[in-house]
Design a protein around this nucleic acid. Structure first.
Length: 554
RNA sequence: GCCCCCGUAGCUCAGUGGAUAGAGCACCGGCCUCCGGAGCCGGUGGCAGAGGUUCGAGUCCUCUCGGGGGCACCA
């Protein structure tokens, strides 16, 4: 990449200046090189002279001058300027920018993707909503973000698997089964009380009705355990199927649906505790088995086996971790809601106590969706069933607008979400702005074809005729894509892509305003059609990473 | 009480320690004889507060205030 070459040129220039005695032999570290926010400051800018000035005991501008003196004329650089307090600004040649069009076309779907210096096998586990009811809008945020992060990692050269951890074991599942069974009995006019803290939502009611139709009256007088087992198992099966269907409709495809129960049934959980025990990291106290997480900074030790012998969630997490690592992942990413951030040090400690590398686990903590409806806060509880469901959201807002909405914001801050407002604004959703730009490009390409303009191979086209400021602005933005993807992936920040997409769309619209594409000038027409294609490829590739469609008409 | 996240324009949010802090929505005013007006151009308006580090702070550190989340033998 041009960035790397420029950084290398700067480094060599500094070394030469130092060798010649023009600059003192101070260590410069990594060469800072950034894209200035203002284009008057060039395509690339380095503040290296400012950073060096103090150690060199020289004025920053003077340092910059001596570096520039040794810099000569790097390839593809039209001119170099020293500006402001001592920035060294690089302006790329128009030819380099225009030629990018050929590179973009050649790369096609791969444009924007890159190779990782050290490719890893990475698993991303996300959503993993409890299978005791429908998903809500909070889950939709993580579905959007997790899928996009996985896509970004894949686009930067890693091998990625998406996984959903199905919590099909434990008290909530039992409670779910008993709630269904109670509804079933009530359905047939029997006296039955909902279990304490049971699932009140109409989802459970409706599911119980369905299952009642299936089971008929044969379980009415069966032993409670048998009845509850039926409803628990069938309820789980159907709810997991519903969750899968929703995520499928949302365009999220998991490679693995991993059952928590399988860890208990295979003995993996017991084995995990045994392994910790053998390593001397657990002890018994008041009938329970505790893990010494305080050894690694936790404020208190944590129970892994309760006094009734049942393993805790942490014990299952340890077993799950061992399983994941056994599958050969170099890195395991957990996308968790902030309600679980307190569990991070415990799982991390457990990993370390297992003797594994805690840095192989990465916890991405996302803040909540604060759901309101007409200004009133709505709690997203499966038990009460009040929440706005994921399906309702999809129905009312649509997949593209919903995804884009969730991805537009960083994950570190709480997202305010008023369904009424989002539905009302869905027509104003910036996703349409971006999609419109894409459709418009497609329309222009169709128009050219209708006019009988045959697109010539890019190698035969005079790309250097792309000289208009709007053309160059668009080219510069297109050129940024690989870097944007790389940064978004590294920072686990898909929202950078939505910002980029909007910038790119805006610059395309500006280009459209200023430059007639299909004109009498055949040579310029060809160049501009190819620029349109490059813009289209860039837009489409970003939208693919976001999981949003790139319509040819709308 | 302790820990984590957040506080930027009227609203929802961007902003890898750099130069004049940006979008969308809302509001006001403009723009097609021509490839898509779901567009374009212009305007109003902002870093919660106080210290500190730095050549340079919206960004890093400390404290205050405000909002959210956690601190289980729950999942």
């Amino acid at each position: 990449m041009i960035r790397v070459r420029l950084a290398g040129s700067i480094r060599r220039a500094i070394e030469q200046a130092q060798a010649a005695g023009d600059l003192p032999p101070v260590d410069v570290g990594e060469i800072p090189l950034e894209r200035p926010s203002r284009k008057e400051h060039g395509d690339w800018s380095s503040g290296v002279a400012l950073a060096m000035a103090k150690a060199a005991r020289m004025k920053p501008r003077e340092v910059a001058e001596r570096i520039v003196a040794e810099l000569g004329a790097p390839e593809h650089v039209a001119r170099i300027e020293i500006a402001g307090p001592g920035f060294i600004n690089f302006f790329l040649t128009h030819a380099w920018l225009a030629n990018l069009v050929a590179g973009v076309e050649a790369a096609g779907d791969a444009w924007g993707r890159s190779e990782a210096p050290e490719p890893q096998r990475i698993q991303v586990e996300f959503v993993s909503a409890n299978p005791t009811g429908p998903m809500h809008v909070g889950n939709a945020r993580w579905a959007s973000v997790g899928d996009a992060i996985a896509a970004l990692l894949g686009a930067t050269g890693h091998e990625v698997e998406r996984e959903y951890y199905v919590n099909d074991h434990g008290r909530q599942v039992e409670l779910f089964g008993r709630s269904l069974a109670a509804r079933y009995l009530q359905r047939f006019g029997r006296e039955a009380e909902m279990p304490e803290g049971g699932y009140q939502g109409h989802y459970v009611q409706a599911l119980a009705e369905d299952l009642a139709a299936e089971a008929g009256d044969r379980l009415l007088d069966a032993p409670a355990a048998e009845r509850e087992a039926f409803f628990r198992e069938e309820g789980l099966r159907r709810t997991v199927a519903d969750i899968r269907a929703t995520l499928d409709a949302f365009g999220v495809r998991y490679d693995v649906w991993f059952s928590e129960r399988s860890l208990h049934e295979s003995g993996a959980v017991t084995a995990a505790v045994d392994r910790l025990r053998e390593a001397g990291h657990v002890y018994e106290h008041e009938g329970a088995v505790w893990l010494r997480t305080t050894e690694l900074g936790d404020d208190k030790d944590r129970v892994v086996l309760r006094s009734n012998g049942a393993p805790t969630y942490l014990a299952a997490d340890v077993a799950y971790w061992i399983d994941k690592r056994g599958r050969g992942f170099d890195r395991v990413i957990y996308l968790w809601g902030s309600d679980h951030h307190g569990d991070v040090p415990r799982v991390r400690a457990a990993i370390q106590l297992l003797g594994d590398d805690p840095d192989a686990a990465e916890f991405i903590i996302g803040q909540f969706v604060h759901l309101t409806r007409g200004g009133e806060t709505v709690r997203m509880s499966k038990r009460t069933g009040e929440a706005v469901t994921f399906d309702e959201l999809l129905e009312e807002v649509g997949r593209d607008a919903a995804r884009y909405h969730f991805l537009r914001q960083g994950i570190d801050s709480t997202m305010d979400f008023d369904l009424d407002l989002v539905v009302r604004q869905s027509q104003e959703n910036p996703v349409y702005y971006v999609q419109y730009a894409h459709a418009r490009i497609c329309s222009i390409l169709r128009y050219a074809e209708e006019q009988g303009v045959a697109l010539r191979p890019v190698s035969e086209v005079a790309l250097e005729e792309l000289q208009h400021e709007s053309e160059l602005d668009l080219l510069r933005k297109i050129a940024e894509l690989p870097e944007v993807v790389e940064v978004a992936a590294r920072q686990r920040a898909p929202h950078r892509l939505t910002r980029y997409a909007e910038d790119l769309a805006a610059l395309f619209h500006a280009f459209y305003r200023d430059c007639r594409v299909v004109s009498e000038d055949e040579s310029l027409t060809q160049a501009r059609l190819h620029l349109c294609r490059a813009a289209r490829i860039s837009l489409r590739n970003v939208l693919v990473l976001l999981g949003v469609s790139a319509p040819e008409r709308m």
